[in-house]
Design a protein around this nucleic acid. Structure first.
Lengths: 302, 302
DNA sequence: GTTCCGCATGAATCGATAG
DNA sequence: ACTATCGATTCATGCGGAA
């Protein structure tokens, strides 16, 4: 190979499945995915496009899927669930709370709840509540120790840093020295020429919906942040409710392998046109693996 | 009376109770409070000052208190609970989720969950999580219809969407009008040329370090926002876990009657020195009402 | 009176060490 | 094994004193 680049480009694969989420999940190999990032249909929220799951049935519907996701995720992997409960009869529904409790019974660890603070949410007015400007990003893991690449998502520091960086070595050096006589070398190097800080568990992103064709698209920054944080190049990202394919497109751009599952042909076809063809693997119907429920066998692999 | 002012100043009363929260609550009359705003000791979090409740016992401990709060709140009143679960063994504790479910069984409606996005959160770095920059503000009500004075908490327009609205008026407006025949375009034009907007359910405030004497003071803006939103002058505000008395001090400043309950004499004494004396009513010990558990009877009422 | 700069300090959490 | 204590880590804010 006459590749002059110092680091060879990793060839990644994007695998798109047309079909029911659970049907496809059961066929994926266990311990094979590094990150699951998804935004499932909210209860009764998108009736027009998906079936619409009644709030009372939501946990019941989701648990078998959660079980399969647990199986396919690597022990060091992470599952991030973007969800928000809807208002029913003047009250917030409790199905998300119940879902967290139910998932813990399956063995999932509820590691953290991050907040997506939406910068520009839609204007509107109700007599008994204000505009909803946030959604949950529930982080689940199989084990207490998982892969996390915090340096990949650092953010610029506040303005105060400008003035502080000048004199910083004086005070911080002393403060660190006063406690222990040793180890200050490392501490100082942490702070010298520092212009970035680690982020918090609140993501302040715009509500930007580039994909007008899908009713529930999140901004690209959202999957991007989690893909950078929880995977490295060549890892595998899964979105079992692909929708307009934002997660998969970002995964491809960041050189991660990805798997997307979508039940509606319209979205499936739309996404497949937007993925680089030479990296695309399509499973438009029921056969790449052994299938029990179907006798059709016409997989299309490009 | 030779009061020349167009609106007479309402004389408000601040009632401070020294004692256990539950013991005092049972003596308060039913349907007498317009807003309960409080921040109870988080599980195991203020061990040094308060006892510290084990996460597993938290719901059990809180439920009797929630029951009494339900009794004393007016049908049109609101209960706002500021709380956040701690991390236990690498996982977020679930006692807050369980608390919400348990409170609904008592009859409370879980109307909304607002977010306090903390501008300056606690620093630190851990291998598996980022800094925690938000807390829950759980809104509970007795009935679907409650008092809410939204106009009192409007924010300057620039804070959220000047640019967004200009865009809306040109692109989204046209798109939405063509898509759905609804009158959304008209609604948007209502928002233009206005200098104030309704806020969202995310409050972006700093944590104040003003109150050196109490370990867990929230910023004054927090109770202020809810007092303005859910009460009017002359109404009654209750904080059953008074602490440094921020809620009561703000209530007094905003001309609301208020009741504060505190179990630690240090905080009780500190607060009582900071309240305008001519409006102060003290119940430093066990008698203003009938007491079953105590024989002491030395109430101090000024 | 302003503005600037230094400084202490938080509803924290992890991992290691000690009982 | 399981619990309690301790040191290390980190960043935005408001205060007070100085220019």
């Amino acid at each position: 190979m006459s590749d002059a680049r110092p680091y060879p480009t990793i060839q990644v694969k994007t695998e798109l499945h047309l079909g029911d989420c659970l049907d496809v999940l059961v066929q994926l190999p266990e311990n094979s995915v590094d990150l699951i990032f998804t935004s499932p249909p909210y209860a009764d929220q998108r009736k027009a496009t998906y079936g619409g799951i009644h709030p009372d049935k939501y946990v019941e519907w989701f648990i078998p899927i959660a079980k399969e996701m647990y199986r396919v995720l690597k022990p060091t992997g992470t599952f991030v669930l973007n969800i928000k409960e809807k208002v029913v009869d003047g009250e917030r529904s409790t199905y998300v709370l119940e879902l967290i409790l139910a998932m813990r019974k399956l063995g999932w660890l509820w590691t953290e709840e991050l907040i997506w603070h939406k910068k520009n949410c839609y204007p509107g007015k109700w007599p008994n509540r204000f505009r909803d400007a946030w959604e949950r990003l529930l982080q689940f893991n199989k084990h207490k120790h998982f892969n996390m690449y915090q340096d990949e998502v650092m953010v610029p520091m506040g303005d105060w840093a400008n003035s502080r960086l000048k004199k910083l070595s004086q005070t911080d050096l002393i403060r660190d020295n006063s406690k222990v006589g040793s180890g200050f070398g490392k501490n100082v190097s942490n702070w010298l020429n520092r212009d970035k800080a680690y982020p918090t568990n609140v993501l302040h992103l715009a509500t930007e919906c580039n994909n007008k064709n899908h009713s529930a698209a999140f901004p690209e920054e959202l999957p991007e942040w989690f893909i950078k944080l929880f995977t490295k190049e060549g890892d595998v990202v899964l979105d079992p409710f692909m929708g307009s394919g934002t997660t998969n497109k970002i995964a491809q751009r960041l050189r991660r392998n990805s798997i997307g599952i979508e039940i509606l042909p319209e979205y499936f076809d739309m996404v497949k046109r937007q993925i680089e063809p030479d990296q695309l693997f399509l499973f438009e119907s029921k056969t790449p693996y052994e299938r029990s429920k179907s006798e059709k066998a016409n997989a299309t692999v490009r």
